[in-house]
């Protein structure tokens, strides 16, 4: 049985690989009325795979899913990771001048089981490799990541990935006074997941009025309370907090909430792990688009100089095309994990 299953999987993989190879790893020039959904349909025959297009072209799309600028050149990533290049292994130093390790203003985004974290880490690493006025650096990640601080003081110089604490609208946020935030390493999408039996239209916030949305405890809520969207304080959307993403999905299937809203990869992975793929589906537009940043303490003796190095390295990475390569490879990996 086991062997049979294995062979089937391999065959499916081969078939899938051939099928996609013909349609991917190419450039698509945006035409009038193209959306990420129509493009996903065109190349993958599946509009629900729009996030592969989106994630593979974040720098060109700039948060837009629908109103794409005609003429924009988009990469159509190979969803199965065919033909990708290998990058150098992480650089190791016992005490490099610059140490970056996971640590976040919101725990789920720095958790080792968040499947997008390796992508964020690799982008950070690749950006640091291109920094101007170079210093020795180390990106600690996975088992190598220790505490951010000990009794002797901070261990890491910088942490990632941080959500922008939206200082302009929430000036009281403690993080605003404490850290510099880099330019976003990636933008992550906060999705709305609904019961497959009870899908509702979602073209804008107005469609959610009167509904109950579940957001797990420990996940950020700043996107629910921002100018024009005072859901935590005023309604009209009711926000329900459950202990975990899984509990939110339980509430959804019990009919206790109308939708679950979490970061897309956290949601998709939970659905895959609980084998809920037939019962829960993401709606086809995100609730929020959140940038993930590197945070550097404002009192670090090299704070602004490190900020400059990170941002300039990231700019260089995007200019060389390395950025898009990393994203497409990881999106393929993550897609495989949630399929």
């Amino acid at each position: 049985m086991m062997r049979h299953f294995f062979r089937q999987t391999v065959l499916a993989g081969l078939l899938f690989g051939q099928q996609v190879a013909a349609e991917c790893d190419r450039v698509h020039t945006v035409a009038t009325d193209d959306t990420v959904f129509t493009i996903a349909e065109q190349y993958y025959g599946d509009h629900t795979r729009w996030s592969v297009i989106y994630d593979g072209n974040q720098s060109q799309l700039g948060g837009q899913l629908f109103q794409l600028a005609p003429g924009t050149q988009l990469t159509i990533p190979c969803a199965n990771g065919v033909g990708v290049t290998q990058v150098a292994p992480l650089r190791q130093n016992s005490r490099a001048d610059m140490i970056l390790q996971p640590g976040s203003n919101f725990a789920p985004y720095a958790a080792v089981d968040w499947i997008a974290l390796p992508m964020v880490a690799e982008i950070a690493e690749a950006a640091l490799a291109l920094m101007p006025a170079p210093v020795t650096y180390e990106v600690r990640f996975g088992d190598g990541a220790g505490p951010v601080a000990t009794h002797e003081g901070p261990v890491a110089d910088m942490t990632f990935p941080w959500l922008d604490p939206a200082c302009a609208t929430r000036p009281g946020a403690a993080a605003c006074a404490e850290v510099h935030l880099s330019d976003p390493l990636v933008e992550t999408l906060v999705m709305v997941f609904a019961d497959a039996e009870a899908i509702f239209p979602f073209d804008g916030d107005a469609d959610l009025e009167g509904l109950r949305l579940c957001r797990p405890v420990g996940h950020p809520t700043q996107d629910l309370e921002r100018p024009g969207r005072g859901w935590l304080s005023d309604g009209p959307v009711e926000i329900v907090r459950a202990d975990s993403t899984g509990s939110c999905f339980d509430l959804l299937l019990d009919g206790a909430v109308d939708a679950v809203t979490v970061e897309q990869w956290i949601g998709l992975k939970t659905i895959a792990d609980r084998d809920l793929r037939d019962r829960v589906v993401p709606l086809s537009r995100p609730l929020s688009v959140e940038g993930l940043h590197i945070a550097i303490p404002r009192s670090h003796w090299r704070g602004t100089a490190f900020l400059y190095r990170v941002n300039a390295g990231l700019e260089a990475l995007k200019a060389t095309g390395g950025y898009d390569e990393i994203v497409s490879r990881h999106v393929a990996r993550m897609q495989a994990q949630v399929e």
């Binding site: 650089r91 190791q92 130093n93 016992s94 005490r95 490099a96 020795t136």
Partner: peptide, 16 residues
């Protein structure tokens, strides 16, 4: 590859 002076000092002298 990737070794720094402090890494070697830590390993060989026990004090980076």
């Amino acid at each position: 590859r990737g070794e720094s002076l402090s890494l070697i000092a830590e390993r060989l002298y026990g004090d980076r």
